[in-house]
Write a protein that binds this DNA or RNA. Structure first.
Length: 452
RNA sequence: GCGCAGAUGCCCGAGCGGCCUAAGGGAGCGGCCUGCAAAGCCGUGAUUCACGGGUUCAAAUCCCGUUCUGCGCUCCA
């Protein structure tokens, strides 16, 4: 069974599933108010890899990830730019899915939208008020945090410390009974998007949508709730608080991933505009970013720089060359090695160990083939290829279409080489290079491929 | 102030009490292969894991302190 660091437990624990053989996962999705950055990219990649691994393990995976399409940040931007909030959310969501496609992140099984769930949210809030777990003020509805058992579980702090902290913060909602109480519903000002409720026109407060949607699609006591480290508190703490206050069993396990670091200003400058995922994909092979994410542990801070991206890209070139070399391999993977892969991934998602194993198999395959041991090479290659496949790294085993004029040049060069006219052969290679093509003389003749 | 992560070779990054004179990737250098390349392979690279104490037969790994970095403490993945 797979073990993960459970934020609520504070340690690595075996995942105990609600229904054996099935796993239900709720990944806190994006609030669509701007273009996704490399941090969102790591987020998406980490859980995509987890999901692929679980599917490979043979589990029946239900993977839900929401789109928060109504939120203060969206409204703020709409106001600032004089645009319709809905237009911003729709466009940003399109950019999000485009980015996910570039990163080869599979679409979730369900993609609930906050605005489609306003009614059930109002229902939940009504229940909380009836149970006297929430109260109405002049600007909204608030949850009585003190009524929630274990409030601060995820933050790993008690209520007093939480209230005490952050001295100069401005407390939202002046009529709150406790400064730590948080908004479930906010009454809107004219011109702002709003929905009807028994307490007045307004919009949802603190991510009530995640509570309602996860319980609706995955049911009580679903297996895993995930997100970025920054979401631990208050976002997830408050989701849990609402569910618990409503008497519901919420997520069994909580998983949070670490941040992307860029050394502040200096880094963002040297990275240029690459912090945005679409721009990253313009400047680098997006697969390089997946590899980079895989090479670090999901809970560790990850340094993203031009150098680290270039390194990963060079490593991808090596993997592609490997895939080309073993394109015709039809062996199956080595069971012992795959068991090792399984063990690594099951140990708090040790993707770095998995990638380590993959590269060792790549070398083993190359070495065996150089030695002339076809079969051993094929098995090692199949193993590396299988690992790459499971973690979502798509290797390019062919150079793709070779244009006629390039093929022509390659033929001319082969002829020149046959007559040992090295000067002419090199001259033709220079012309190929100038045209952006590389020619490799392998055992089965020359192969042309585009320069990366 | 409180809480949570970190600090490992030129860069990224694993390891979390003995198998560590520290994985893997990238870069460098030397070599093999090649007409020359490319690809591939081999070799080389921290006797040391921010710093100072301590525990232990044994510490990169545990404890205490210090320094630095990131994050959270009510709407940031």
């Amino acid at each position: 069974m797979i073990s993960l660091f459970d934020t609520a437990a504070g340690e690595v624990v075996p995942l105990e599933l609600r229904d054996p053989g099935k796993i239900s996962i709720y990944v806190c999705g994006p609030t669509v108010y701007g273009p996704p950055h490399i941090g969102h990219g790591r987020h998406a990649l980490v859980y995509d890899v987890l999901r692929r691994f679980l599917v490979w393990k043979g589990l029946d995976v239900s993977f839900v990830s929401n789109i928060t399409d109504i939120d203060d940040k969206i409204i703020d931007r709409a106001k600032a730019e004089g645009r319709d909030w809905h237009d911003i959310a729709t466009k940003c969501e399109r950019v999000w899915w485009r980015s996910m496609e570039l990163l080869n992140v599979d679409k979730p099984d369900h993609i609930p939208h906050a605005t489609d769930y306003v009614e059930p949210m109002v229902g939940l809030i009504a229940e909380l008020i009836d149970a006297e777990k929430a109260y109405v003020t002049s600007d909204g509805v608030y949850l009585r945090v003190a009524e929630v058992p274990d409030y601060g579980l995820l933050a790993n702090q008690n209520l007093d410390d939480l209230v005490e902290g952050g001295g100069d913060r401005t407390v939202v909602g002046e009529e709150k009974e406790n400064p730590a109480d948080f908004a479930l519903w906010k009454f809107t000002k004219p011109g702002e998007p709003s929905w009807g409720s028994p307490w007045g026109e307004g919009r949802p407060g603190w991510h009530t949508e995640c509570v309602v949607m996860s319980l609706d699609l995955l049911g009580e006591g679903f297996d895993l709730h995930t997100g970025g480290l920054d979401l631990t508190f208050p976002h997830h703490e408050n989701e849990r608080a609402q569910a618990v206050a409503d008497g519901k069993r919420f997520a069994r396990h909580w998983m949070h991933h670490g941040f992307v670091e860029m050394e502040g200003e200096k880094m963002s400058k040297s990275l240029g505009n690459v912090t945005n995922l679409l721009d990253l994909a313009e400047s680098y092979d997006p697969r390089a970013y997946r590899l980079l994410v895989l090479q670090s542990h999901y809970r560790s801070p990850m340094e993203v720089t031009d150098t680290s991206l270039s390194n990963a890209q060079a490593a991808m070139a090596r993997l592609d060359a490997f895939a080309r070399r073993f394109a015709s391999t039809s062996q199956s993977a080595d069971a012992a090695a795959m068991a090792e892969f399984d063990a690594a991934m099951s140990r708090d998602l040790d993707t770095s160990g998995a990638v380590d194993l993959m590269f060792r198999k790549v070398r083993e395959a190359n070495t065996s083939l150089d030695r002339g041991d076809q079969n051993e090479a094929a098995v090692a290659a199949a193993t590396a290829l299988e690992i790459a496949r499971v973690v979502g790294l798509v290797l390019r085993s062919s150079a793709g279409e070779v244009p006629d004029e390039i093929a022509e040049l390659v033929r001319d060069r082969t002829a020149a080489r046959a007559s040992k006219d090295w000067a002419r052969a090199d001259e033709i290679r220079d012309r190929l290079t100038a045209a952006g093509w590389m020619v490799e003389d392998g055992p089965e003749g020359p192969v042309a491929r585009p320069v990366a």
